Simulated scan of single mutants.
Amino acid sequence: MRIGVAIDAACDLPHDFLERNGIAVMPITVKVDDQKFKDDRDPAEIQRFRDQKLGSRSHSAETEASSVEDVQDLFLDRMVRDFDCVVCLTIMATRSPIHDNVIKASFAILKSYRPVREAMGHTGPFLMRVVDTRNIFAGSGPAVAETVRMIQAGKSPAEVRERAAHVADCSYGYMLPRDLNYLRSRARSKGDRSVSFLSSMLGTALDIKPILRAHRGETGPVGKVRGFEHGAQVLFEYAAKRVQAGLLVPSLSLSYGGDLDDMRNLPGYHPLTRICGDAGVEILESPMSITGMVNVGEGAMTIGLAGEDHIAEF
């Protein structure tokens, strides 16, 4: 059985990884003032967004996930022709409508696929499996990587979906924002009062950065550090300890809202890569999605890994 993968554009993964594994991307439309961007993990489009230097104006951007109709078109035009089953992985349903849109689209797709497949000479049924990664940005990476690994190992659609859902439950996504004022402005534009004016002012004045965690559909602060570079080192060292303790998936995801060489020059990065190499853990590093940069600001960093339940102390 030919099993394919489709992801939400806000799942941060390298473009070459997506290309190599034939992974389809369900795009997000981003509008900033009179500029429009198609967020589909295309490196050129991500660079175009960064080159615009929109800065503080991006906090008021509008984002529009793939609609039910968009998902239907993607599948009927491409996926039902190329595969017998497709596993769709989205960022957490509590933060985006894309998961619900895919579920709704699946009903129409499963009613309409037969003529398309028959015209291609495919007489067998078409299956869809939808997985909420319960995470965002790089935090969605482990579930996608494990889905690919299971498919390559020849597992059945049921086994692939069950394993992906389990990894999603065990995935931890951590984010270190660079600009608290931007984060507060973006939160307020979306009606989220979780980043108060006072805390953002104090944080900016003292260079205090929160460490935010996404896990099982919830996001919130789990620590704070002084200075972005120190925060990056703290996160890299934490990730290295988790690798040494043993991950559920031999992949670790990194995404950065800027030039990846800047991330690679942060303290703690090179020791982490050495530890991952020794443990046989693949590092999947990528530019942050346009959607991610709009929501948390350029220069932010996220890390995703899957492991047993544990308490992270920062």
Rank of each mutant, 00 (worst) to 15 (best):
S67D: 01
G280E: 01
L176S: 10
R117P: 11
A6T: 03
A164E: 10
D77Q: 15
M201V: 15
G4S: 05
D51A: 15
L180V: 14
N181T: 15
V71L: 02
V160G: 11
P142S: 00
G307L: 02
V102K: 09
M1F: 07
D278G: 10
L76R: 06
A312T: 03
E146R: 06
C88R: 00
G203V: 13
T29R: 06
P250Y: 03
I98G: 06
S96A: 15
H230N: 13
R50Q: 13
L206C: 13
R20M: 06
A108M: 09
G231Y: 10
I103R: 12
K38Q: 13
T123R: 11
V80C: 09
S199G: 14
P97D: 09
R81T: 14
L206N: 11
L18E: 10
G217Q: 05
S289D: 01
L110F: 07
F75C: 10
F236K: 01
R117Q: 04
G231A: 06
A312Q: 09
Y113M: 10
A300Y: 00
T219S: 15
L18W: 04
H122C: 05
G154I: 08
D192P: 01
P287T: 09
A240W: 00
A165Q: 15
D169K: 05
A108N: 11
D262F: 04
S171T: 13
G141R: 00
R117C: 07
P177D: 10
D309K: 13
L198A: 15
D39N: 12
L183I: 07
L235A: 01
Y172N: 04
K155Y: 06
R117F: 07
L212A: 09
D132I: 03
I211D: 02
M1C: 03
G292W: 04
V80N: 06
A93C: 08
T133V: 04
G246C: 05
G280F: 13
A65C: 11
L252S: 03
Y269M: 02
L176T: 03
G280S: 10
F17E: 05
P115H: 02
F83G: 06
V130A: 13
F228W: 14
P142A: 00
H270G: 05
D132N: 02
I46E: 12
I28G: 00
K104M: 12
G297W: 04
M26K: 06
I311M: 09
V32T: 14
T147H: 14
K190T: 14
C276Q: 12
V294S: 02
D179V: 08
L89W: 01
S185Y: 09
I91L: 03
H310Y: 07
I211W: 03
T219P: 05
A119M: 08
D77R: 14
A153T: 02
Q35R: 15
F236W: 01
A165V: 13
R50H: 11
K104G: 01
E162T: 06
E282W: 03
V80P: 08
Y113A: 09
S185E: 14
M120L: 11
K241L: 07
R20N: 04
L266G: 05
S140G: 10
S251A: 14
A164H: 01
K104H: 14
D42W: 03
R114G: 08
L13V: 09
V102S: 02
A93Q: 13
G121T: 10
F83S: 12
V87M: 15
T204P: 11
L272D: 02
L18Y: 03
